[in-house]
Design a protein around this nucleic acid. Structure first.
Lengths: 240, 240
DNA sequence: TTCGTCATATTTGTCAGACAAATATGAATA
DNA sequence: TATTCATATTTGTCTGACAAATATGACGAA
């Protein structure tokens, strides 16, 4: 008895309606601010019940693609790009592989923003970073407090002037925190292996390159700063 | 007459239920594969109608956080991290600022993966890239066909072995294509300003650095390769 | 006329009930 | 024991109803 279902990935009516709505927006070339037909019309046009339509609309509403107000109908809105990411980037639900990937993603991105940073860097930025570094209490072995750590890197992201990059930092922060906690043995400074130049790079070191406006020096320092993460990631993956 | 509504950002019942469900998953420390109560129980426990609960569940289903099958109940699943991004990264709906941010994001990430690439680079990888470069028809002024362009950069992402990074490339591809089309005047090679080393870096040049296993040379070449984009981004932003 | 006030109609948000489809469960049977 | 089958249960979908909010138009006053 062959049980080859066509509906392998059970495409439900709501899924189809969701797709059709997105297609409709594209075909009609709708822009944020444009209004879309009311629920009843959409449901009739798509030949589905209002509940199914509303489930699909609810999804788009969550993504920030549409907004609706009583009696005023629904309009398209420009979605927050990373808004939906916040919901799924939940370390306790994601598996190790996905978490490692996210950590690698973050490290790569942060190394990659060196050029953007130096394109926008102002004296005021440097002053702000100096304050953060000064305020940061340094623990033994050059370990920073989580708050200081976060402030420092957030400021780097902010200097890029790229909102999406800055938001991204907030989204993956839980991942970094979670992994550092879960594998804290590895991240004990005494246990960490140093690669690259072999020298431990601190926030203060990075700040000095910014002050000197030494882009390539800063870039290499960032790479060294993240060397322990690369080491951790290659270990973590091989361990698996 | 003061009209200060508390419900400024109209938090609907569905929104609240969505939050409560996510909290519930976290508090109960549920993992992918774990089953969750049936709809009726959840609705009663939360004190809402079944339709409201279903709208919230529908959202989580879209994110890939849960799956449900008739009579078998619902289970938590590990979501695709970037799945939801695909829906909102729609160039025709996003504004220019968001699109510029995404392009900058992409460029930064791609420059940042140099280390990951060299950590994983194999002889076979080099052979594959060589094939792609050879197949790529080169237009006038060193312009590649979109397909060749895409294949080359996709392969770089793949070499990192990081699924999330690779998926990301697919997600923002429409953005790059859209911006290049919309501002094609700018991207005409004759009009492009060359920064960095001032020399146009081709895929073939990049390939040579890979062959020589020259990481820093490759990195600098990537930066030069993307120099036109940085130039475009700073212009686009100031133009605004 | 022009402005403010108010009743009405309309649209989204929520609830309740019903049925269909799929399938886990347990009873009946070989 | 293994198979078959009826039943119950759970999700998917439809329909109708009402509440809340507010756009709209009618009405009256200046």
């Amino acid at each position: 008895m062959y049980n080859l279902k066509i509906t392998d990935h059970q495409t439900t009516l709501v899924d189809q309606v969701e797709d059709k709505l997105l297609d409709y927006f594209k075909i009609m070339n709708l822009k944020p601010g444009d209004s879309i037909p009311k629920e009843q019309e959409l449901a009739e046009a798509l030949g589905v019940g209002r509940s199914v339509l509303r489930e699909a609309l609810s999804r788009l509403r969550m993504l920030g693609l549409i907004e609706s107000r009583t009696r005023r109908g629904m309009i398209l809105t420009e979605p927050s790009i990373l808004g939906s990411l916040k919901r799924v980037v939940e370390p306790r639900i994601l598996g190790d592989e996905a978490l490692f990937d996210l950590l690698g993603f973050r490290v790569a991105l942060e190394i990659g923003i060196c050029d953007l940073i130096f394109n926008n860097l102002t004296d005021e930025n440097i002053k702000e970073i100096e304050d953060i570094v000064d305020r940061g209490v340094v623990f033994n072995y050059g370990e920073y407090t989580p708050v200081s750590e976060f402030e420092f890197h957030t400021k780097l992201y902010e200097i890029t002037g790229n909102k999406t990059i800055t938001e991204f930092q907030e989204v993956i922060r839980p991942v970094s925190v979670f992994l550092k906690e879960k594998f804290k043995d590895y991240f004990l400074p005494t246990n960490m292996e140093l690669e690259g130049s072999g020298k431990r790079v601190t926030h203060k070191d990075l700040l000095n390159y910014l002050k000197k406006r030494d882009k390539e020096g800063f870039r290499q320092a960032m790479i060294d700063h993240f060397a322990p993460y690369y080491s951790f990631l290659s270990k973590g993956i091989t361990k698996k």
